[in-house]
Amino acid sequence: MIHIENLKKLYGSFPAVDDISFDVARGEILGFLGPNGAGKSTTMKVITGYYPPNAGKITIDGHDVVEESLVTREMIGYLPETTPLYLDMTVYEYLKHVAEVRRIPANEQKVRIKKMVDVTGLADRLDQSISKLSKGYRQRVGLAQAMLHEPKVLILDEPTIGLDPNQIVEIRELIKTIGKERTVILSTHILPEVQATCDRVVIINKGKLVADGTPDELQHRFQGKPVIYLQLHGINPDDFAKINALAGVESLERLDDPEPNVVSLQISTEPGTDPRGDIFRLCVSQGWTMLGLTRKVESLENIFRSLTRTDPTAKAAGEVAA
């Protein structure tokens, strides 16, 4: 549906987006992830036709966003980073204005507006001035505006920013519902959001694409070494070697004792192994009392951090490129 090929956008000589390529399939919800200043908004502005690209090509449903801008703009609903609202209008006047500019037939305007305010929970705010609305409600007006013409493609730049936790859940559900029929690109730096709503994730950093896959795939690919945290009572430090000898255990480190007579260990394991069963049986046979056993797999959050860290030794990024 959306095809982005070698996109490049410069601000002066600074490459805000540097040779990015990816595709978004029809009906897919794509999470566009990256730290602030990574080039997410810039990419979105190029897709929507607000900025011209310096190089590369973007097509939507086969139509070039530069050559056939009017056609592609027709297909897109866009919520920019700063919610584009006319504060001197009421919610209804604003949506009506957008409907008129979008040339939605006059007899359909009311129905569409009604539908959108129902979906976004704005029905009781229709006659309120936008300047009097809270940030969360303004964001809803922005969303209603973006979906008013039932676009095939939705581009949402940080749609849940400024919302309270309940609203965030509501808006995510809303995006999920919409995403069943439409293609959605949503940018965010909130990771649970991606896991909660997106079919696929693209991570960019400093204008370059560093990862592309489903949330599960990324988790799997960048899993690294699962770590086991173990708390034991009655173990003699000389016996640590017995744990170390278990299959799958790579190394072992003693952490500060959390309480007297309790030994806390951090065990690094080989990828793809889970020696927890063996550890349990060893403890039983040795007569150690097990007070805690947890296994931690790298979260998407850590993956994100390791991929977008500013230091040049960000190893994971190199691995993807290779």
Binding site: K45, T48, G49, Y50, L70, V71, R73, E74, I76, Y78, P80, E81, T82, T83, P84, L85, Y86, L87, V98, V101, R102, R103, Q145
Partner: peptide, 14 residues
């Protein structure tokens, strides 16, 4: 300045 231009010119208008 208010950001509404970004909406206005990304709608299908000449």
């Amino acid at each position: 300045k208010s950001g509404t231009l970004e909406l206005l010119v990304t709608m299908p208008v000449r």
